[in-house]
Design a protein around this nucleic acid. Sequence first.
DNA 1: AATCGTTCCTGATAGC
DNA 2: TGCTATCAGGAACGAT
Length: 289
Amino acid sequence: MPELPEVETIVRDLRKEIVGRIFVDIWTDTESLIKKEDFESFKKKIIGRKIIDIGRRGKNIIIDLGSDDILLIHQKITGHLLLGNWELKDNKWIAPEGPLSTDPMNRFLHVVFYLDDKRQLALSDARKFAKIMFLKKDELEEEFDKLGPEPLEDDFTFEKFRKMFLKKKGKIKQVLMDQSFIVGIGNIYASEILFRSKIHPEEKIENLKDEDFKNIYNAIRDILNESIKLRGDSFSDFRTIYGEKGGFHKIIKVYQRKGMGCVNCGEKIERINLGGRGSFFCPKCQKKR
DNA sequence: AATCGTTCCTGATAGC
DNA sequence: TGCTATCAGGAACGAT
């Protein structure tokens, strides 16, 4: 489940590894992962193009091909972008060396970009929810107009954040995960942010005070930054482009800890379903108002 | 207009 | 043992 810290980790690694490389071929067994146009047309637009830069907006990965052309990738839930050196044998992708050689994700490679240095950039995606598309820069900007601010940017100040809440209703966890409100926070970090802020995930925005907004604001920035330092999550099946796990599990407090003791008070962590999402919290530390 | 519910998809897991 | 049913989950889209 790549969220902001995971996508940021992937983008930083990719930028280091593949800027300047040229796409020489593309393989797929699932053409539906390519959006907006058919695979053949997409392939023609990508092959021969050089990677000029790689960036991120929310959980979207932006591969800049120059001349206002963009390759956009969103990994959604089970998508993984992996960099390796596979061989296709009997319809199976085999990674000969490194952490990827034993990775079960090799079974789910559905789109493989061949680079001009003999390596491949692959999308593994068990549930096939990911999306890949070719866009012109103005189309990209149109897509991104719908998105909320980047929580780690310098211009994302507390005052701005507080004002955003004043015109918002609903349950806090769902608001935090709403990408048009703020980008980058998904199911894992929403639970962790609310635990640190000592706020129940079902708390209504209307019941929150400035002090709560401040706690949430600090928790968002601190937790996302801490996770980037640890190279992302490890509790879900996330891995870096090298097939390694991140280290966020070292500081995780509530996510997937149902029935276990709260690290603050020992109370059993509970799990509730909120808008179809599993939400974890401590009933004692995060009391409803 | 904003919020809520449904849908996409398939591997993992539980239950018989 | 092996089958079937259930669940997870980001975000686009339709419904209210």
